[in-house]
Design a protein around this nucleic acid. Structure first.
Length: 243
DNA sequence: ACCCATGATTCAGG
DNA sequence: CCTGAATCATGGGT
């Protein structure tokens, strides 16, 4: 009965209910409860409702078949009662046998349905654990931020949200990314030197463009306050250490 | 088949 | 809570 209850009572709530997954918790906490990975989730829900629908139609079919078979047997018994006496008790016994048979079949149906749900559930959980690399564009945006804030690569909540939006990933994914990036950068600065230079140059170019545009706009003004824009070269030290 | 990069998870500390 | 660190597990290139 437990499996049955689970199947029927769970409804379309997510599979992470009992899991206590850190990702789910983190995502929920980060995004204020709104659902990310909604594509997979809706897919899961659709499949679950499909399974339940099949289950209910099958169950109905079995019930109908059971009733039909019962009346059929009753008719047979009634015909036989013309040639031999049949007690009501005997009829009751037959009906009982039929019902027991059909209910055991229904049990099997429940069992297999539950199995299907379990498989679906584990598939879903596996899928969300699976790692997909971010798009090149997304990593570019993240790296740009990281290397232009190398002295303090800790984006605020708002910054994280903006990055998440720009990269079309979740805030918790941004947090993961920065967590991994910081530790891996620190661990092997040499390996990231090239990358750092690349992004420094890249932002330098955009900064230069901005400066050029500014200069063009007001050539007569004094070109002071170069530090206000936080341009990249000054953001990391020559030894590459953070802070 | 192997290896490394990488996103996610876990756990400890503050 | 957020973070650092270690670790897991997969992706993708060779």
């Amino acid at each position: 009965m437990r499996l049955d209850n689970m199947l029927l009572a769970e409804g379309v709530s997510g599979p992470e209910k009992g899991g206590g997954s850190a990702a789910a918790a983190a995502a929920a906490a980060a995004s204020g409860g709104s659902s990310d990975n909604s594509i997979e989730h809706s897919d899961y829900r659709a499949k679950l409702t499909q399974i339940r629908q099949i289950y209910h139609t099958e169950l109905e079919k079995y019930e109908q078949a059971c009733n039909e078979f019962t009346t059929h047997v009753m008719n047979l018994l009634r015909e036989q009662s013309r040639t031999r006496p049949i007690s009501p008790k005997e009829i009751e016994r037959m009906v009982g046998i039929i019902h027991r048979k059909f209910s055991s079949i229904q049990m099997q149906l429940k069992q297999s349905t539950c199995e299907a749900v379990m498989i679906l559930r584990s598939r879903f959980l596996d899928a969300r654990r699976k790692r997909r690399n971010f798009s090149k564009q997304a990593t570019e945006i993240l790296n740009e931020y990281f290397y232009s804030h190398l002295s303090n690569p800790y984006p605020s909540e708002e910054a994280k949200e903006e990055l998440a939006k720009k990269c079309s990933i979740t805030v918790s994914q941004v947090s993961n990314w920065f967590g991994n990036k910081r530790i891996r950068y620190k661990k092997n600065i040499g390996k990231f030197q090239e990358e750092a230079n690349l992004y420094a140059a890249k932002t330098a170019v955009t900064a230069a463009h901005a400066v050029a545009a500014a200069v063009q706009n007001n050539q007569t003004n004094s070109p002071t306050t170069p530090n206000s824009g936080g341009y990249p070269a000054s953001c990391y030290q020559s030894d590459g250490r953070i802070q």
